[in-house]
Write a protein that binds this DNA or RNA. Structure first.
Length: 577
RNA sequence: GGUCCGGUGGUGUAGCGGUUAACAUGCCUCCCUGUCACGGAGGAGAUCGCGGGUUCGAUUCCCGUCCGGACCGCCA
């Protein structure tokens, strides 16, 4: 089957040529003895014209039929500036109907009115919409630019196993039963973390992989069960050197894919600063509305909740003092959803107003006004709680308000690094420490000795890349000293035998000359989502799962044949609550 | 596991304690030689997610359930 051009190619310069085109019938406009057809392929649309003598040929042709047509390129009488080929059209001489099509359950156009449910069920048709096709293509381009750069700087692409060993920390594993070894299971990788570190021990020095990862957790618009990480690891580079490579890679992606100029190096915020100013470890700094600390103002006040709180933080929302009771209740509900006990609301009218003011003396009120630099018509939201909680709640309010009050340019891109994460997190519930990043992340060199005395305060050589409030990826320098790695496992509460059973192979490897190394993993789906201005990563994944972990198209997951279970020595006993 | 929102022709929505269930689009037939979201005339197409309850009467109100979505928990 031959075509001479794609449907985006023909211009006024080709007038007079005889061409052959292939494509789907996108739209048919019938004038009796004169018929127009918009012929669509993956590149674009070309208008076909069938005059009186040819109209008969396509009498039965409907939308989404596939045609191969030959004809002469002619200049249009009335041009269409909205499409690339709008200056010309094809005077069709011959037509072959390559295939017919039923009426589609959704309209194949950029502005479909179909709900996501319908789009997912007929995903192949959803993807046929040019807007979707282009998103998937953009993803391809992003991957290509990344691959080219990583190759250029000497990273070797290496595949690591999909069937691997269950890891105890982190997300739930997907398990795959072994037929050959009854009762035993492979796990699908949550990330190739251990393997890429082993590759450094092997001496590959620089590695990357466009790696499929699997986590059996609930989904979100930016989370899928199986997702793709661009997984990168370097030997002998420090954290800034690694970050610099990533900055350059992203700079090229933005330039080559979107023709968007990024300034490097990116802004770096410490975890503490990010939390203090934005109430998030993945801040969107395209707008202000920063958090402010007012703890000290209230340390002797009459208001018990403020006086005794570890932290009192505030955000000042300009010109929103007129917000209705209903809107404020919604903000309070949001604060409570994020775990706040209460949201304190003040309004700056002619004077400061708010029900809690009765607890404050004149001095304290003055102090609030001056330190927050309050102007008339400001709305002030305050939360008193533990530091992290207060930051987190106001951070949630901040991003909510940023979005609803449209405080930022949606088309802008703001990259930044969040660095110096705490190494550990203490879980009151379990009475033990968990690794904030993962158990192989190295503590800051100068803080290693604090591991014995005050592990909580130790920071990690860990860094997250953040774009517009989304965590694009995280990385760290790894521990390469076997004693330090052992100590980490001890702090995390693993016994000697647990270490051996779970990471034995990994710890063993450390004995044989482990280079200093570190790396990062970038969520490709999120990169593609943000660069295509999509609301969900589902838009940039060809065949995604829906919010309840199902594939509405092929209906996975599904029951299997009893004989399949027999072979796996598995009996099913579903526990119902 | 939880909270909130939704489920009405193929698609997307409106509606309401009693309707011939409305509108747009798509589909079918007819008319049309310059459209490009063509236009015009006509037509087919819905047991209002499912089960139960309240009621003389339920698509509408209530309860349950299933399905979809957003978020919280969870996601080192």
């Amino acid at each position: 089957m031959e075509r001479t051009h794609h449907n985006n190619q023909l211009t006024i310069n080709e007038v007079g040529q005889t061409v052959t085109l292939i494509g789907w019938v996108s739209k048919r406009r019938n004038f009796g003895s004169l018929v127009f057809i918009d012929l669509r392929d993956r590149e674009g649309i070309t208008q076909l014209v069938f005059d009186e003598t040819k109209a008969e040929l396509i009498k039965n042709v409907r939308n989404e039929y596939i045609l191969q047509v030959s004809g002469k390129v002619v200049e249009r009488k009335s041009k269409n500036p909205n499409i690339k080929t709008g200056e010309i059209e094809i005077n069709v001489e011959s037509v072959e109907v390559i295939n017919e099509a039923n009426t589609t359950p959704l309209i194949i156009a950029d502005e479909t009115d179909a709900l996501e449910e319908t789009r997912m069920k007929y995903r192949y048709l959803d993807l046929r919409r040019p807007v979707m096709l282009n998103k998937i293509r953009t993803r391809h381009q992003i991957t290509q630019v990344m691959r080219r750069y990583l190759d250029e700087i000497g990273c070797i692409e290496i595949e690591t196993p999909i069937l691997t060993k269950s890891t105890p920390e982190g997300a739930r594993d997907f398990l795959v039963p072994s037929r050959v070894h009854p009762g035993e299971f492979y796990a699908l990788p949550q990330s190739p973390q251990l393997f890429k570190q082993l590759l450094m021990i092997s001496g590959f020095e620089r590695y990357y992989q466009v790696a499929r990862c699997f986590r059996d957790e609930d989904l979100r618009s930016d989370r899928q069960l199986d997702f793709t990480q661009v997984d990168i690891e370097f030997s002998f580079l420090n954290d800034v050197e690694i970050q610099t490579h990533i900055e350059e890679m992203m700079r090229r992606v933005m330039k080559e894919v979107l023709n968007y100029d990024l300034v490097t190096p990116f802004l770096r915020l410490t975890y503490k600063e990010a939390m203090n100013r934005y109430g998030s470890d993945k801040p969107d700094n395209r707008f202000g509305l920063e958090l402010q600390d007012v703890t000290t103002i209230f340390e002797n006040c009459e208001f018990e909740a403020f006086r005794s709180a570890e932290t009192v933080k505030a955000i000042v929302v300009e010109n929103q003092a007129s917000m209705t009771r209903k809107e404020i209740d919604a903000l309070t509900a949001l604060a409570k959803k994020h775990g706040a006990k209460a949201l304190t609301v003040l309004k700056m009218k002619e004077t400061l107003e708010g029900s809690v003011l009765k607890f404050f003396n004149e001095e304290e009120i003055k102090h609030v006004i001056s330190s927050l630099n309050l102007q008339e018509n400001d709305l002030i939201l305050m939360v008193a709680d533990k530091w992290e909680k207060a930051c987190d709640v106001l951070g949630a309010l901040r991003s909510h308000l940023g979005k609803t009050l449209k405080l930022y340019d949606e088309k802008a891109f703001s990259y930044l690094w969040v660095v110096d994460f705490p190494l550990l997190e203490y879980s009151e519930e379990d009475g033990r420490y968990y690794a904030k990043h993962h158990p192989f992340t190295s503590p800051k060199k100068e803080e290693i000795e604090l591991l014995d005395t005050n592990p909580k305060t130790v920071n990690a050589n860990a860094y997250d890349l953040v774009l517009n409030g989304y965590e694009l990826g995280g990385g760290s320098l790894r521990i390469y000293n076997q004693n330090l790695q052992k100590k980490m496992f001890e702090i995390l509460g693993f016994s000697e035998s647990e270490i051996q059973e779970r990471f034995g192979f990994f710890v063993d490897a450390f004995q044989y000359g482990t280079p200093p190394h570190g790396g990062i993993a970038l969520g490709l789906d999120r990169v593609a989502m943000l660069l295509t201005h999509s609301d969900s990563i589902r838009d940039v994944i060809a065949f995604p799962k829906n919010a309840s972990s199902k594939d509405p198209m092929c209906e996975a997951p599904s029951p299997v044949e009893p004989s399949q279970l027999d072979e796996l020595n598995i009996a099913i006993d579903i526990k119902k609550n």
